[in-house]
Each structure stands twice: as C-alpha cells, then as structure tokens.
Design a protein around this nucleic acid. Structure first.
Lengths: 238, 238
DNA sequence: CGAACCTTTGATGGCACTCAATACAGGTGG
DNA sequence: CCACCTGTATTGAGTGCCATCAAAGGTTCG
C-alpha cells in the first residue's frame, strides 16, 4: 500500500481504506480527506438492497469498499437488463445529475463509504482534480459499456459466458482453496442471465459445458476456479 | 439561434456555426472562441473514411457540424460491432487518452471543425467549464451506450429495428417531401445490422414488415418517412 | 445499356428460448 | 442428526426466431 508523506494527517479510517488511493479519494490531499472523512459514514448493505432507485435523484454518494453493485434497467413490460457492474474502488452516484432510468442494487454484501451530495459537489467545485477523476471513471465505464455492447451484439451464448467469467476474474480477488485460486460469484444465475441477455437455463448449460471441458470447476454453485485460463480466453473469442 | 452579447467579437465562422452553442464551443467566451477559431480547420469527409484508427492515439480533435460518425469495434475473427453513433454537435476524440480499441469512421458525408490536440488540452487546463462539458458528453454517451445494452440484450429483431429508427429520427433533421417528413438514412443495411447485432437480411425483413404495416414508407432504399409514430414506439417496446 | 453494388425475398437449419421435471443447497424444526 | 421445505440450479424435450445459403430485384454509376 502506498503511504502518504504525513500519515498522521490522514484520518485513521482512511489510512487502512481499500479505496484510499483509488476512486475519488486518490485525488484528495490529507486535509481534504479529513474534511470528507468527518462527513462520511460506513455502511454495510445486504444483497438485494436498492441503493439508487430509477427515476429518483440520489440523496447521496459513496465509494464502494467491497462487494458488487449491479446497475439495472427495466423495460415497461418487465424485462430486465443489467447495464453495468461496479466493484471497489468505484464511485457510486452521478454528480449534478437528475435521476436517470437506471437503478443500482447490491448484488452481494456491499460495504460503502457514504457521504452527502452537498459535500461532494462542494469539493468538486473547489478541486478540479476531483472532477478529472470523475471524468476518468465515466470514460472507463463508457469503454466497459461499449465492450459489453460488442459482446451482446456479436457473441454466442458460450462466448458470452466465458467473457463474463474473465471479466469477473479480473475484478474479484481470489482466495486459495486447496491447490487453486477460487472466487465467489457475486451474482445469481438470474443476474448473469440478465447481464448477458440470456436465460438462466442457457447460462447454466454453458457453465456445465465449461465444467465438463475442465476449463473451470464449480463448487456448490457459488464459487469458481479457472483451471485453464488460456482455454477460457479462447472460449471468449478474445 | 441564440446570440452572444457582443457578436462582433465572435469569429464570423462561429457565428453561423451549427455547433456554436453545443458541444464544447458552448462553454467558450468570445475571446476563447477567437483563440480556438484561429487554429481550427473545416473539413469535409467522404463516407467510409476512417477518422480515428483503433489502437492509435488520435492526432486531433473535432466538432461534428453535420453527418454521422460510427464508432466500431472489431473482434479478432473479423466480426464487427458498431458501439455508438455520433451526430452534430458532438465532440469527437478523447482528451488525455491513449488510443483505444475503438475506431471512428464517417458513415455519411461528414463536416468537421477540427483542431490540434495541444490546443484543446491547453484550453481544458485553463477552463474548468470546458472539462465539465466534456464530462457531460461522456455521461450522455454512457447513458446512450447503456440504452443500447438494454436493446441488444433484451429486444427482438423487430423491436431493435424500430428502436433504431426512433433513435435516428430524434437525431436527424427531416426535410419535407410531398406531404410527410422524410429523412435520409445515413447508414447502409450492413451498418444497421452491425449496430443492432443482426444480419442484413433480418434488418431488411423487419423494415419490409414495418413498410407493409404502413408504419413507415421507404423511398429508393435510402430515405424513410415515419407514417405512424405511435405504432413505431409500440413496435420498439418503449 | 451494362456492370457493380446494395437490397429484398425465399428456403432451410441451428442455436437459444420455453416449458417441464429433477437435483441440489441452505435453513428450520422436530 | 435427520426430515422437511424453500429457493436456486441443472438437465431434458420441443419449438421458434434469426442466421445461413441462395437467387432475384433495384439503384447508381460509367
């Protein structure tokens, strides 16, 4: 972990924070961290909790410390699509914006560092580097969204599922279990299906197919180990 | 058209510019317009010309004055997906970024107001309002990208084509032809197919279907008139 | 008028969806 | 600890939508 020159000036909570140097906090000087730190509150969110409702202006903003947040859009007839996933240390919320069509929901247990709208917007006005960070995240999200457009538009079901697993594996820290690295899938099969524009049956079939080909191994339907990374990349048509 | 308080200070070229109050120019004061105006060059681009190549850092930036630019991503095996369309007065290029996977190509004849990279980046550093404009466009593009994610993930072929026509009709100015408003489709069937993740045959079939249902009328395969807007919205599942 | 290209239309097949049944995991209470 | 129950995931059979292959029709050039 990188250290600040005068760590004594950095709030204790921030010193050990996973998001200290990422998200928006990376752009802040110690004294600004103190200012922000006074008004933040850490929260732990249950899976399934709605964080930002569609069509409603968010009351606050937050940094994601751990867990996965899914951004969903709902069609008038009830069809649902996950339009993005956010991981630590992503920033949650849209400054200066009216409510959008998108709602945010905790996919797994999520830990947040939350602060009120006014605080962030005030700091942005005084600190151009902060706006630059927000801009950078928006561009990163835009690239990611366009990558998914390509995946949804061009790829077959099996390629979609493989691409999804690769995406997950690059954002989730694995833990060692026996001889191989495993990670918990933070989404249900229904979530994966909503993300990939497939049905849960098709997702399940593709996962089974990868398991039978010994590209991955699945434990209790909840954790996955990638046994053959190269094969997974091939399957994703990357 | 909105007027500046002292129009005499605004470059003549900008006074009559379609993008004067949109894109990034809307954030500029007359004196800054003069500064930028000195270093811009208007260009007219042939359809099919590549404006920004994938993997290469762009040499310059531009405002779109008219026409349509398609942003495409190519897969290793040759499959192609259009990940976004840009219309006037959108800004073209990504400040401070290394080359991305995406390439930009003129879909129709495109008129640009182009300027070198250094000029824009210098102005951004001195003018926070400009960065805010760029941020706002990135967020707009992000919303649009996520809308297409939903369309690609959830909608049927007929719904996709109807959604596409609605999208076009909201970005292209129609001209009166006989008794109804028409507009030229700036994309070939192949482009539409690449955008919607379909084949040209399927696109053609869906267009024929809408024509037979008298929702639209097609003239010489190139221009379209929306005869029944409500029916088109229904067909798009909006 | 003819050539090249784009678009439309038709016939067929495969991939993913739908419907249906079974299997599994986690939690609760006996 | 096991029986039971609920929600989630897997597997199977059949169907439908869209891709593929193939041919004909339009449009725009020279």
């Amino acid at each position: 972990m990188r250290m600040d020159i005068h760590n004594s000036e950095v709030p204790a909570l921030c010193q050990a924070c996973e998001a200290r140097h990422g998200g928006i906090c990376g752009a802040l000087e110690p004294q600004q961290l103190v200012h922000l730190g006074r008004q933040t509150r850490r929260r732990e969110i249950e899976p399934g909790t709605e964080l930002i409702a569609a069509g409603v202006q968010a009351e606050g903003y937050a940094n994601i410390l751990s867990g996965v947040v899914k951004l969903t859009r709902l069609m008038p007839d009830g069809r649902q699509q996950i339009v993005g996933l956010q991981f630590a240390p992503d920033f949650l919320g849209r400054p200066f914006a009216k409510g959008s069509e998108i709602s945010a929901e905790a996919a797994s247990t999520v830990r947040l560092c939350a602060f009120p709208q006014s605080v962030l917007e005030g700091m942005v006005r005084r600190l151009p580097a902060l706006e630059k960070r927000l801009y950078a995240q928006a561009l990163r999200e835009l690239d990611e969204a366009r990558e998914w457009i390509m995946i949804l538009g061009q790829k077959s079901a099996s390629e979609k599922v493989a691409s999804f697993l690769l995406h997950l594996s690059s954002h989730i820290d694995p833990y060692v279990d026996g001889y191989s690295d495993r990670f918990d899938i933070p989404l249900t099969r229904a979530d994966i299906a909503d993300f990939l524009g497939l049905t849960i049956e098709t997702v399940s079939r593709q996962l089974s197919s990868l398991r039978k080909a010994e590209v991955i191994s699945i434990h209790k339907n909840r954790s996955i180990a990638v046994l053959d990374f190269t094969a997974l990349e091939t399957a994703a048509a990357l």
